[in-house]
Amino acid sequence: MPPRVPISSFRRQALRCPYELRIARAASTAAAPAVTPAAPIEQMTRSPAPIARTPPTQPPSHRSPEYRRSQLLRQYTSLLRTSPLMVLFQHNNLKSTEWAAIRRELTKALQKVDEKIAAEGRTSPELSPYIKLQTVQTSIFEVAVRIVEYFRPSEDALASGNPPAPSTPDDPALTHDLSRSAHIAVKKMKGKHELAEVLTGPIAILSIPTVSPEHMKAALSILTPKEAGFPAPTRKGNPDYHDPTVQLGLQKLNLLGARVDGKVFDIAETKWVGSIEGGMDGLRSQLVMALQSMGSSVTSTLEGAGKSLYFTMESRRSVLEEEQKGEGEKSESS
Rank of each mutant, 00 (worst) to 15 (best):
K95Y: 05
E332A: 07
P233T: 10
A159F: 14
Q286S: 09
I140T: 15
S96L: 11
E194Y: 11
A118P: 00
H215P: 08
K190Y: 10
E115L: 11
L206H: 03
L73C: 00
Y150Q: 06
A109P: 00
R53I: 10
Q251S: 05
S334N: 12
Q286N: 09
Q292G: 01
S139R: 09
L127C: 04
S297D: 07
L309G: 11
P239V: 08
Q71V: 04
P172G: 02
L94I: 03
F311Q: 12
E20Y: 07
R16S: 08
R22I: 09
Q111S: 13
T312A: 15
S124D: 12
K330Y: 05
I131Q: 04
R122H: 08
H91L: 02
I276P: 01
H62Q: 03
S70G: 06
L79N: 01
D240A: 14
L178E: 00
T36E: 08
K188D: 15
E142T: 08
L178C: 01
E314A: 12
G201Y: 10
P40S: 14
I205Y: 06
I267K: 11
E149H: 02
S9D: 08
S167T: 15
V145K: 06
M44Y: 05
S221M: 05
R81V: 02
V298R: 09
R16E: 13
T54I: 14
R22F: 14
K187T: 06
A196V: 09
Q90A: 01
P129S: 05
L283N: 06
P18G: 05
A26P: 00
F230Q: 05
E98Y: 01
A32M: 12
E42H: 02
G191F: 13
P56Y: 07
D243S: 14
P163I: 03
R22K: 07
N93L: 09
P40D: 13
Q247C: 10
S221D: 11
A144H: 06
Y67L: 14
Q58H: 13
S293I: 04
S221C: 09
G274A: 14
E120T: 05
R46N: 08
T29H: 08
R68M: 14
E269T: 02
Q251W: 06
R16W: 08
R12E: 07
A30M: 15
P55C: 10
R317T: 03
E269A: 09
P2Q: 07
